Simulated assay, not measured.
Amino acid sequence: MPQTGVGGHWKDRLPPERAYKRRAGAAAPAIEQDRAAGGRNQRNVDLGDGRLARASITLRLYRSTRRIRAYLRWSKDGKTEERYVCEVESDSRKQNLAEAWRQARANGLLAEEKLPPESTASSLDVRASMRGNRGKNTKPELLLRSLLYRRGMRYRVDIRPIADVRRRADLVFPSDRIAVFVDGCFWHGCPDHYRPAMKNADFWREKINSNKARDAETNEMLAAAGWTVIRVWEHDDPARAAAQIENAVRRKRGSAHLVATADARRSGH
């Protein structure tokens, strides 16, 4: 009969990797942490000088004792700090993260973030989403552009893919006819992070639904004109998004080369 208590049922074997390792194809780390903590704004620690830092939970396996320990980690002035939280015993990483966040909160390791008096948002989650996409040159856009540039990709920024259609894309590869949009979670109704506003609910619901309809219409218009549309959420892993975009561009260029070669052979050149 297995023992009870923290780590008791791992007395004679190591915990399964799914209890502490991230699986391939899992949600981006930030989304995973947000879900486990109960929201992005539930992950704060007090730096002691009026500032808050966003923290994460790290799970570590100690093979000699067959235990999984959870640690709270955050950055202060460029230096990573860490605090032990508890031991966890579920066979599920998701459940172990959630339990660690619960223990961190119960132990007073987390700080409560409050809405500033001037904010018109109905909650912290809504405010964070609204601030996530304020226009061009957002942080997710800049990071994605930097990664693509390092991969040798060249593109145009914030232009109309089709000159006479009033729709602008965040990144455009004109010769490849690829348009990239980096969508903010609040303004574009992200299924993972969008939280309906409580204040002026009807207005915001209509606004977000209108934005989503416009996005769908833009996709259709560009596709009908022979463009490939790639949409990236602001919370997406930027490295993964950059790889997706690069692969799409290289596939287009490879196809174009094959077509040009076939045409040349048919014409006898």
Rank of each mutant, 00 (worst) to 15 (best):
A37W: 09
R151V: 03
S90I: 06
D183E: 04
R154G: 00
P29C: 06
K114I: 09
E32H: 06
T218A: 12
A201C: 13
G39S: 02
Y149R: 13
E206G: 14
A128Y: 12
E32F: 02
K136D: 07
D263P: 01
L59D: 03
M130T: 08
R214A: 15
S119R: 02
N133P: 05
R166N: 14
P116C: 13
L258F: 08
P116H: 10
D125G: 11
R131E: 15
S90A: 15
L144P: 01
D34P: 12
A163G: 13
N107M: 06
V249D: 01
L144R: 03
H235D: 05
G189Y: 03
A163Q: 14
K136V: 12
L142N: 13
Q244D: 15
G189F: 05
G152R: 13
W187E: 03
S146N: 15
N137T: 10
H188L: 03
R83L: 11
R151L: 15
P191M: 00
A55C: 10
N96M: 02
K79C: 08
A260N: 11
A224H: 09
I178V: 08
T80Q: 03
A27Y: 11
S175E: 15
L142Y: 11
S123H: 01
S123E: 10
L97C: 09
G268V: 09
A224W: 04
R150D: 14
L144T: 03
M1P: 15
Q95R: 14
K139G: 00
T228R: 12
A248G: 10
R205Q: 11
A37T: 12
V229C: 05
D12V: 12
H193C: 11
Q42D: 03
E246T: 07
I178Y: 01
D183M: 02
L258P: 07
R253F: 08
K79D: 05
W10T: 00
C185T: 05
R127K: 15
V85K: 00
A242C: 02
E246K: 01
G189K: 09
E112A: 13
Q33C: 13
Y62F: 12
T58F: 14
V259N: 08
R151C: 12
D164N: 08
R105H: 13
P16D: 04
D91P: 07
F181G: 03
D263S: 04
S146K: 09
R51W: 04
Q103N: 11
R253S: 06
F181A: 02
